[in-house]
């Protein structure tokens, strides 16, 4: 019995050690962001050093970085909001008033999410050029809304299906309007699901690179495009790169940590809860 207990302890310690090893590159990047450029290159890596916020000042003072941070916030925020406005009502109808075709509709909606971006990038590029949507916030919001919409519909369909229809029926007999029904019944009851959905949209949009890289240049370019420009820095400015990368990655990491219990449900379109 004691040997089994010992084995259990061993596995627990091993799990934590593996987790630390897997996380180490991220920890090291964050640590490097507080070092001077000279300290960043010392090997073995310095663990005790005089921390500095200089790299963060430099990163945020760069006009390009700050603008792209604002771009990312604006594009992510608006596209998530529009996707919710269109997607939550759609999920409502599909969950509470299904028809024979609803199942097919849900599948089709899912298939639009699985559409490879390379399969549509050429026409999008040409349409965007012709309609003056190229390198605009509006254009990116339009696209990211389409990217988030299937996610919102599937997730909210999954969460709304947990609400008993009798509650809605009772309120409808009392004569509530549709807006009241959303405001006082649907949204409060589905709030945890709604929050998880918002966080997932936020994660996917914030991290998106392919569409942004090909459909923006500077004016509407988000941070993912900015960070990719470090691809040729060949390790010369590790500390500044780490600071910029840390600010860029941090919001999504926090969102993911907060929503980790519903992450699976969102990632698998409700196939796994």
């Amino acid at each position: 019995m004691t040997s089994r207990k010992l084995g259990g302890h061993f596995l627990s310690v091993m799990t934590v050690v593996i987790a630390i090893v897997v996380f180490f590159p991220i920890f090291w990047m964050v640590l490097t962001s507080f070092k001077t450029e000279a300290d960043a290159f010392i090997y073995p890596p310095l663990v005790v050093f005089q921390p500095t916020l200089e790299n963060y000042n430099i990163a945020l003072a760069q006009s390009g970085y700050f603008r792209q941070l604002v771009n990312t916030l604006a594009i992510t925020g608006f596209s998530t909001a529009v996707a919710l406005l269109l997607g939550v009502p759609a999920a409502y109808t599909l969950a509470f008033h299904p028809t024979k075709r609803s199942n097919f509709t849900l599948m089709w909606i899912m298939s639009t999410r699985m559409l490879p971006p390379v399969g549509v990038i050429v026409p999008l590029y040409i349409i965007f050029q012709n309609l003056d949507l190229f390198d605009t916030h509006f254009g990116m919001i339009l696209l990211y809304t389409a990217m988030n919409l299937p996610l919102v519909i599937w997730m909210m369909h999954s969460f709304l299906s947990d609400i008993p229809y009798e509650i809605l029926e009772a309120s409808q007999i009392d004569g509530v309007t549709l807006i009241q029904e959303f405001r006082y019944i649907i949204v409060p009851l589905a709030l945890p699901g709604l929050m998880a959905t918002i966080l997932l949209c936020f994660i996917f949009t914030w991290n998106e690179f392919f569409l942004a890289f090909n459909l923006t240049i500077t004016k509407a370019a988000p941070l993912s495009v900015f960070i990719a420009s470090f691809k040729t820095s060949e390790g010369l400015f590790w500390a500044k790169m780490s600071a910029a990368a840390t600010i860029t990655a941090l919001p999504v990491v926090i969102a993911g940590w907060v929503s980790q219990n519903s992450l699976v449900r969102g990632l698998t379109a409700g196939a796994v809860k």
């Binding site: 897997v22 590159p25 991220i26 690179f209 993912s224 990655a249």
Partner: peptide
């Protein structure tokens, strides 16, 4: 800690 690599922006991971 283990889910964090999935959350890091792919271009950040690649550059890092």
């Amino acid at each position: 800690l283990l889910i964090t690599p999935f959350l890091i922006m792919p271009t950040v991971s690649a550059v890092m």
